[in-house]
Simulated assay, not measured.
Amino acid sequence: MWIIIQKIPLTTTQRELNLFLNKQINGNRWFGLSSNQQTRLKSFSILRMTDRTSGEIECHGLAEVETSKPEEEMLRVLNGHQLHGQTIAVRKYYHRSNISTQTAHTKSTSSFPGLRDRRRHSLHIEMLKANSGGLAIGIF
């Protein structure tokens, strides 16, 4: 299951996000051993988004969690905790397609009145991903 951790503080590091997610997912640990073998953090990244028009910056976490728990329970476990004094919101991540033509958009939303494209096209997105050699940065 992929999750998005919304509006994490800008100062959050990869290490801090990793520790935070593992603590929330696995609860208390005894000598580094997880008390919950049902759930595992497979991967995570920090997305730094800059609005090209306003200059506003936001950070979000994106993580892949392997769990045998129901999705609702997993989201409830993660949601509402404090990271650097800021309450975070966690929800399931849904990948959006890259279709950008108006024709395709009209076809996909015509059967759903009120549905609109919520993507913010003026965003510059950097993905900071942990790897064995440090951080890798990808620009989208």
Rank of each mutant, 00 (worst) to 15 (best):
E16V: 14
H81C: 12
W2Q: 14
L47C: 11
Q24R: 12
T12S: 09
I3H: 07
H124E: 15
N18S: 14
F112E: 10
E72P: 02
R120N: 14
H95V: 10
T67F: 07
T11F: 00
H81E: 08
T106I: 07
I99T: 05
L62G: 04
N18P: 00
W30V: 15
L19S: 09
N18Y: 12
P70N: 11
H124F: 06
L115V: 12
K42W: 02
I88D: 01
Q14C: 09
F112A: 04
I5V: 15
F44P: 03
K69F: 13
V77I: 12
L47M: 11
R76E: 15
L62A: 08
T39P: 00
S43A: 14
E66S: 14
E73F: 04
A89G: 06
M74T: 15
R40F: 11
V77C: 03
P70H: 08
D51S: 02
L33F: 14
F20N: 08
R120Y: 01
E58V: 15
T50P: 01
G32T: 09
T106M: 05
R119M: 07
I125F: 03
K23C: 02
A104W: 05
S34D: 06
P70W: 04
M49H: 07
G114F: 14
H84A: 13
L123G: 00
V90R: 08
S108W: 11
G114L: 14
S43T: 10
T11K: 11
T13M: 12
G114V: 09
T109P: 06
P113A: 09
M1Q: 03
L10G: 04
Q14K: 05
D51I: 02
S35I: 00
D51M: 02
L21M: 14
M74A: 13
I5C: 08
R48A: 03
L41H: 04
P70M: 03
Q86C: 10
I88K: 01
S45E: 14
S54C: 04
Q82V: 01
G32R: 05
Q24A: 13
K92V: 02
I99K: 15
T101E: 10
E126K: 07
P9G: 00
N98E: 11
E56I: 09
S68F: 13
N26V: 00
Q102T: 11
Y94W: 08
V65S: 06
C59R: 08
S122V: 00
M74Q: 11
S97Y: 01
K23T: 14
E72L: 06
Q6A: 02
W2H: 15
K107G: 01
E56H: 12
K7L: 06
T53M: 01
R118H: 07
D117G: 06
T109Q: 03
S35R: 13
E58C: 04
Q37M: 05
I125R: 03
T39I: 15
P113V: 03
S45T: 11
I125P: 00
Q102W: 05
G80Q: 08
E58P: 00
V65L: 14
P70V: 11
T53S: 01
M1G: 02
S34H: 01
Q38P: 01
F20L: 06
S35E: 08
L17H: 06
V77Y: 02
L33W: 07
T12C: 05
S34T: 09
R91T: 13
